[in-house]
């Protein structure tokens, strides 16, 4: 499978990365090189193989469903590019 420039632009939109026409053209070639490389996997007989979900043989650890952390809104918003009164500020999203 290979991608065309339109597909690269669509995927970039899904990934929320702005790409110029030049970027998209360059990336199309690069992405096709990688997709060409991974095509080797078509040779593998995967009949009966389960997809890996955990590389280590261990049941997922669970913790008590309780509040164990909190009351640190200042710490959490401290690194925000724009914040006000412990809120993250973003451009208006509702008309």
């Amino acid at each position: 499978m290979s991608v065309d420039t339109q597909t690269v632009k669509r995927v970039a939109r899904l990934a929320r990365i702005k790409v110029s026409d030049d970027d998209a053209t360059r990336m199309t070639g690069e992405l096709n090189a990688i997709l060409g490389f991974v095509e080797q996997l078509d040779e593998v007989d995967i009949e009966g193989a389960e997809p890996m979900t955990s590389v280590v043989d261990q049941t997922m650890k669970k913790r008590v469903d309780g509040v164990t952390d909190g009351n640190k809104a200042d710490d959490i918003t401290r690194n925000a590019p724009v914040s006000e009164d412990q809120f993250f500020m973003v451009p208006k999203v509702v008309e």
Binding site: V38, L41, V44, I46, A49, E50, P51, M52, T53, V55
Partner: peptide
């Protein structure tokens, strides 16, 4: 498919 190959 990649996750199946990983199992192998």
């Amino acid at each position: 498919k990649a996750q199946k190959v990983r199992t192998l």
